[in-house]
Design a protein around this nucleic acid. Structure first.
Length: 481
RNA sequence: GGCCCUAUCGUCUAGCGGUCAGGACGCCGCCCUCUCAAGGCGGAAGCGGGGGUUCGAUUCCCCCUAGGGCUACCA
C-alpha cells in the first residue's frame, strides 16, 4: 500500500480563514482516510506581513477544529524545520544549482523599470511578461554589477514552446503553454525565495505525494512544474479544490461578515459543527445523511467526490448544522459552555444569585432557541427584567376571568422548582376554574412577564420561584384593577 | 487584455446517455402547542443559451454568455 503524504502550508499573515480551514480539512481528511501522513508547514517568506502571533492563532484554530498533524511545526519530524524562514540555506543550495546549470539567472532590473515595462505592455495590449532583459548578461557583466553592490533577483529561464500538463485529481487534465509565462522571479533581491520556488523544494524534500490546495493555485502550477523539471524532481499529484465565495459570488472577504475561524469560535459555533459544515462545502458523502461525525466523514472522504464548482458560504445552513450539534449536548454540558457568554453579559450579576438547579432549568428552557452559544444573551432577558407590559399582554389581561386566574394562582401556587409539578398545578387550576388552557396560560404569562411569548411557563415560574412570582402577580393585579 | 477554471432549485449538492431530475438549508402551508422555538407531515422552487454527436441528452463535443482565479521582488 502506497504511503500518502499531504500538507497544509498557511502563511502567517492573518487569522485562519474559512477557505484555509477547508483546505486544511480536506488534506486532513484525505490523510486520515488513507492512513497517510499530514504535514503542517509555515510559509513565512513574506517578511513584511508574516507575524508569529498569526502563526499561533492559526495553529490554535486548527487544533480547535479537530485537525491534527503527524509532522510539522509544533510537532516535529524528520524533514524539518517546518518554517520556511528557517530553511533558507536549503533553498540557497537549489538556487545555486539552478544558477550553475544555467536554468536561472540574476536579474538587475529595478522595480521601477519593471513597473514601467508593465505599463507599456498594458498600453500596447500585448502579453504581460518579463522582457528577458537580463537573460543574456555575460558572466563579466554580472560580476561587475555584483561588485558594484547591486542586489539582484533570481529568475528562472522559462523553456520555450513547451506544454505543461497538470493531471489534476479533481479537475482532470489541464494544459498550459510555457510561452505564456515570462521568466519569473524565484528569489527576491534580499535572497529570500518566492512562494513558487520554496513550495516546490519543501514539497519534494518533505516527501509530499498529494498537493491538495485551493484553486487559486492552479495557475501557479505550471511555474512549479518548470521548477520540478529544472531540478529533475518527480511531480506529486495535484488536486485543486474550488474556492469558497461570499453571497455575492466574490471570493470570501471581510465584508462578507465573519471569515476567520476564531470569530466563529467566539460566537459559540461548535468545532464539530464547523468540521461537518466545511466538509460539505465542495464534498458530499454518498448517502443522504448530512450530519456526520468526524470518523464518518473520514471514512467516506475521497477526492473523487469533491466538486469542481465554487461554493457559496451559506450562513443559514451553518446555523442549522450548529443547532444539530447543540441539540446533542446535555443540558449540563450546555450550561457549562454558556457560562463565559453569560459572565460577559449584562445579566452576569443576576445569574450569580441563581442556584445551580435553577440555572439548569433556565438553560433547559431556552436551549432550543440557540443557534450559537452567543445567542444566550438575547434569550434570557425575560428571566431578569422587571415586567413591562406590552400591548398584547395588556390585551390578554383584559379578559373577564383574568382576575380569577391570577388570584387562584396567588393563593395556591406551590413552593416548588419542578416544572412538571407546576404544570400539574396549572392543569388543576384550569380544571378547577373550568377554563381553556389558553385562558389560564396567557393571562398568567402576560402578568408575570409582560409579554405574550417566551420560554415555557412552568420553567419561567420555577426559575423565578414562588416569592418572585407572587410579587409579579400582585403587580399585575394592581395594574388591572 | 492574455492564460486557466467553473456552470443542476435562492444556497450546498446527488446525477457519471434512457430518472416522475434525488436530498439538505432556507421559504410557504398543516399538525403539535399558552406563546416563540423545537419536532412531525406536506408544498413551491432547478438542468444559462445556441449548435452538434446519438434512436435518445442534465449527462459527451464545440461556440456564446455569465461568474471566478492567475497574470507581484504576496502566498
Amino acid at each position: 500500500m502506497p504511503q500518502f503524504k499531504v500538507r497544509f502550508a498557511p502563511s502567517p499573515t492573518g487569522p485562519l480563514h474559512i477557505g484555509g480551514a477547508r483546505s486544511a480539512l480536506f488534506n486532513y481528511l484525505f490523510a486520515a482516510h488513507a492512513g497517510g501522513h499530514f504535514v503542517v508547514r509555515i510559509e513565512d517568506t513574506d517578511l513584511e506581513r508574516s507575524r508569529r502571533e498569526y502563526e499561533d492563532e492559526i495553529i490554535e484554530s486548527l487544533r480547535w477544529l479537530g485537525i491534527n498533524w503527524t509532522e510539522g511545526v509544533r510537532q516535529g519530524g524528520e524533514n524539518g524545520p517546518y518554517r520556511q524562514t528557517e530553511r533558507l540555506e536549503i533553498y540557497r543550495r537549489y538556487l545555486d544549482q539552478l544558477l550553475q546549470q544555467g536554468d536561472a539567472y540574476y536579474c538587475f532590473c529595478s522595480q521601477e523599470e519593471l513597473e514601467s515595462e508593465r505599463q507599456d505592455q498594458l498600453a500596447g495590449s500585448s502579453m504581460q511578461r518579463y522582457s528577458g532583459k537580463c537573460r543574456g548578461l555575460s558572466a563579466k557583466e554580472v560580476e561587475e554589477k555584483l561588485a558594484a553592490g547591486m542586489k539582484p533577483t533570481i529568475r528562472l529561464r522559462v523553456p520555450e514552446h513547451k506544454i505543461y500538463v497538470v493531471n489534476d485529481l479533481v479537475r482532470g487534465r489541464v494544459t498550459f503553454e510555457s510561452d505564456n509565462s515570462g521568466d519569473f522571479i524565484i528569489a527576491k533581491s534580499d535572497g529570500i525565495p518566492v512562494y513558487n520556488f520554496a513550495v516546490v523544494i519543501d514539497d519534494v524534500l518533505m516527501g509530499i505525494t498529494h498537493v491538495i490546495r485551493a484553486e487559486e493555485h492552479l495557475s501557479n502550477t505550471p511555474r512549479q512544474l518548470m521548477l520540478y523539471d529544472a531540478l529533475n524532481f518527480k511531480y506529486p499529484q495535484f488536486a485543486h479544490i474550488s474556492l469558497i465565495l461570499g453571497s455575492d459570488r466574490q471570493k470570501m472577504s471581510k465584508r462578507h461578515g465573519a471569515t476567520s475561524l476564531v470569530q466563529y469560535r467566539e460566537m459559540g459555533y461548535l468545532p464539530e459543527a464547523l468540521f461537518n459544515f466545511l466538509a460539505l462545502l465542495g464534498w458530499s458523502p454518498e448517502g443522504e445523511q448530512e450530519i456526520l461525525a468526524p470518523e464518518e466523514i473520514i471514512k467516506a472522504f475521497t477526492l473523487e467526490r469533491v466538486a469542481k464548482s465554487p461554493a457559496v458560504f451559506d450562513m443559514d445552513k451553518l446555523n442549522w448544522v450548529n443547532q444539530q450539534y447543540l441539540k446533542k449536548k446535555t443540558t449540563s454540558e450546555l450550561a457549562e459552555m454558556l457560562r463565559p457568554y453569560l459572565a460577559a453579559s449584562e445579566w452576569a450579576g443576576a445569574l450569580k444569585e441563581l442556584d445551580e438547579f435553577r440555572y439548569g432549568l433556565l438553560v433547559e428552557a431556552v436551549r432550543d432557541h440557540l443557534v450559537c452559544l452567543a445567542d444566550i444573551t438575547r434569550n434570557i432577558d425575560v428571566f431578569f427584567r422587571e415586567a413591562v407590559y406590552e400591548a398584547e399582554a395588556l390585551e390578554a389581561l383584559a379578559g373577564a376571568s383574568v382576575l380569577n386566574v391570577l388570584e387562584a394562582v396567588r393563593e395556591e401556587l406551590p413552593d416548588c422548582m419542578q416544572p412538571p409539578e407546576i404544570k400539574d398545578f396549572l392543569k388543576a387550576t384550569i380544571k378547577q376554574l373550568k377554563l381553556k388552557p389558553k385562558d389560564v396560560y396567557m393571562p398568567l404569562r402576560s402578568a408575570l412577564s409582560g409579554q405574550t411569548h417566551g420560554p415555557e411557563l412552568p420553567y419561567l415560574i420555577c426559575v423565578w420561584g414562588r416569592e418572585e412570582c407572587l410579587r409579579r402577580i400582585n403587580k399585575a393585579i394592581a395594574r388591572i384593577s
